[in-house]
Design a protein around this nucleic acid. Sequence first.
DNA 1: TTCAATAGTTCGCTAGTCTTGAACCAATGA
DNA 2: TCATTGGTTCAAGACTAGCGAACTATTGAA
Lengths: 106, 106
Amino acid sequence: MQRPFVHPTIEDIKLETILYALSDRARLEIVRKLTAGGCPMNCSTAAPVHLPKSTQSHHYQVLREAGLIRSERRGTEVVNTLRCTEISERFPGLIPAILKAADLCD
Amino acid sequence: MQRPFVHPTIEDIKLETILYALSDRARLEIVRKLTAGGCPMNCSTAAPVHLPKSTQSHHYQVLREAGLIRSERRGTEVVNTLRCTEISERFPGLIPAILKAADLCD
DNA sequence: TTCAATAGTTCGCTAGTCTTGAACCAATGA
DNA sequence: TCATTGGTTCAAGACTAGCGAACTATTGAA
């Protein structure tokens, strides 16, 4: 049973949940790729390649439920887009600050 | 056996660990209080009151091992200070951005 | 229409982590 | 000396992450 994707509304997005979602190396990489590569992007393109499919799927679910990405089915694929605009309305400057810090880690 | 506190060096501080440490409501509150009240501050002052001692102690340990705070024993108390300067050297603007976002949640 | 390939989800298991009460410890002050 | 204060450590149950295996939905041949 493929359940429909659930996305929180802007008001329901919580800071703690966003920080938690980004506190994982793989998920942070997904968000960075979505930012750098220009949305939209399908799952297998954005996720670190070495990870099992089930794990990737889990990471996308965490990012989705945190409100960081929006997922839509397009045929056999799932297309993911960053919810940049919405998040920057709710928490201006937060995501850029985190991504900038991530760049410093490389 | 009271073990000595372990603090990571600046180089060892990881972005993911910081985000994880701050992805908890209680720990975020502790950091906010340390920021607002001006460091240093002892444990029982900074932590949310309703939490059991053991849980508070655990949260301080997470913050300490993430490199966010420095803890020192002073008599029967433990005095905690934010490692603001060091972290802003490693990740400029990160903590202020998160704290600003936290203010918007109130 | 049927069948295989593709892209991803869901299930079930193991291993690790969080929370908390209970027991403990070290410094202070009466 | 001994109770108090402020915090740590331990142990146990509840919860969560990672991953292989099984499954589902769509597409594109044959």
